[in-house]
Design a protein around this nucleic acid. Structure first.
Lengths: 342, 342
DNA sequence: TTGTAGGCGTTATCAT
DNA sequence: ATGATAACGCCTACAA
């Protein structure tokens, strides 16, 4: 017994006694075919166990119904919820998701953009807006619709579905200042290639400025996102002469690391030092005390990005536009008023 | 100015003054072409900004160089690290990953298997082994290589790259018994459609049996994976007459929920009640006290699954076989010896 | 409503 | 080493 070649459109056509065109129509536009033939065709389809050949369909239709998503990391849960919602929404529209993760590297991301495009992605979801002109040019030449997420940048050509990182962080910082903190430190991801991280730090600076404080006195430590990295950064920060009373972290993962380190150093949170995060992932409500953080509407962001992208891919360019979502402050136990110093 | 059609192989051929066959060879088997023509072709490629058409390539080559992965959830980090490693390994081999998540539903998973196959996935990564005969038949008929992960089942036809959930949990339970616990409860995911969950509970039972205890006395509460679900289950469990002294959770997420609830109920861990998890995700080392759990070699499992799948897709059926990985007990603060009851 | 037939862009076989 | 050319399986005017 040899390997059976899968049935093709013309097999079905022969079996049903119609032309290949009719079968194709029957599958793609069922109402353009009489009920009688439709039945005949459909039963032929199921009898033969016919499945359309993907490559052939793509070649002829010039659409893959596939959308690519490139996220900075899958190692932790930061992008997971949004991605899940993104995928669920795409699925509703019969679109499949291709995923790649860039490990927060701009070079890897550009490489992956090219790969996904050559893999026939009809559209792309990218995180943040910071990337080279060259790659944006490439995407434009290739006519690939792009949606940026985790940022809101109505000034850019690609649509974005996200929020204003700077304002969100500014709001949080205002709250911190309100509680009396003056000596503040920031643990941030490297800001050079990461506009979200950059904007968040900027938000802190602006809040200080508005409060009449000197942003230059802000203690900033940059380190890759990670629990251990957050812990180490916290250790170094707390080793300085005049310890900060509040440590604002660029995301919840760094904050979790900072909190672990604080525990190790016997520093009580929030009595001796307050810690805050950003993103509001599960981690934030699990640590003890629970983490004060900026809540990001993960699922909504993912779903809306998917909707926008699907519209763009379908060519409804005029309908869509950038969407700004709101973040909210989630005040929890890790942030408290300034008390007597250690 | 009209929309420019992207350059094709024959455009490149004309530009370089060679045949399309040569261009194709030059791109796919560079060493089967003389250096001179290669240079000419490659410069033509970059001058025109040529990118191969995905659909055409798939149609002609009968391979998409794409592998699908269906995981139960992306909502939390459980599968994230393994998936990242999986993707990184695939990438090394020029293979792209398609992802879908099934929300722990067998029906959704089967649907997605069909979708990914019709999308031309050359192979599939699936989690666990429990699914219908029908879908396994389908995969066999379609000749789609499959690798199962998070389980080790050398008895099945599809290869598996994973570990023995039952033995892992048995080992943990033995440790718990060693510490004097006799009144034990389990919080598990629903075991009906989830062989990993089922095996884990079985492991607890076997350990009890081996220790001469009656498995029938084991208190088991099934609930979907989730922090809140874990918390609620814990609350109910601790409401019984004769409280357990140890609560073994089916995974770290449930355990984190249980710990949160314990805190809320003012129960000290591990003095009044011990809690354990499974998976060893980041969460486990962040909670306080840190969680005793079964460490799973996420990254290794993902990478090995990818390697196996790539080999299978290339047709090296004989070379590969199921791979058993080891889990290890990670003893941390959440598990302690039995002390005076509350 | 249904059928005919050309085309989509590559790959791969077979000559040369 | 290179070139002609026949698939590959489907879609879609266009014709009937």
């Amino acid at each position: 017994m040899s390997t059976q070649a899968p049935p093709t459109l013309s097999d079905v056509a022969r079996h049903a006694g119609v032309s290949t065109a009719t079968v194709s129509r029957c599958l793609n536009f069922p109402d353009k075919v009489s009920a009688a033939t439709r039945d005949r065709v459909l039963s032929a389809v199921s009898e033969l166990g016919y499945t359309p050949n993907f490559g052939a369909r793509v070649l002829a239709a010039k659409r893959t119904n596939t959308i690519g998503a490139i996220i900075p990391t899958m190692e932790n849960a930061i992008f997971a919820r949004g991605l899940q919602a993104f995928q669920e929404e795409l699925e509703k529209h019969g679109v499949t998701m291709l995923v790649a993760s860039s490990s927060y590297s701009q070079d890897i991301e550009e490489q992956q953009i090219r790969t996904l495009v050559s893999r026939g992605a009809d559209g792309l979801l990218l995180i943040g807006a910071h990337r080279s002109e060259a790659i944006y040019d490439f995407l434009e030449r290739q006519q690939i619709p792009v949606v940026l997420s985790w940022v809101y940048r109505p000034d850019l050509k690609p649509f974005s579905v996200g929020f204003d990182n700077c304002i969100a962080m500014e709001e949080l910082t205002r709250k911190v200042l309100e509680l009396g903190h003056r000596k503040i430190a920031v643990i941030s991801a490297p800001t050079a290639n990461n506009d979200r991280a950059y904007q968040r730090v900027l938000g802190v600076r602006q809040a200080l400025q508005s409060a009449g404080l000197d942003p230059a006195e802000l203690l900033i430590r940059e380190t890759p996102y990670g629990i251990d990295e957050g812990a180490e950064a916290f250790r170094e920060i707390m080793a300085v002469q005049d310890r900060p009373t509040a440590v604002l972290c660029g995301n919840d993962v760094l904050a979790a690391g900072a909190m672990r380190q604080a525990r190790e150093m016997g520093l009580s949170i929030p009595d001796e030092v307050s810690v805050t995060g950003f993103d509001d992932i599960q981690l934030a409500s699990i640590v003890s005390p629970a983490l004060t953080t900026v809540h990001v509407p993960h699922r909504k962001m993912g779903a809306e990005a998917a909707r926008t992208l699907v519209r763009l891919v379908k060519g409804e360019r005029d309908v869509s536009k950038s969407l700004r979502l709101d973040t909210t402050l989630h005040l929890r136990g890790s942030l408290g008023p300034v008390t007597g110093r250690t």
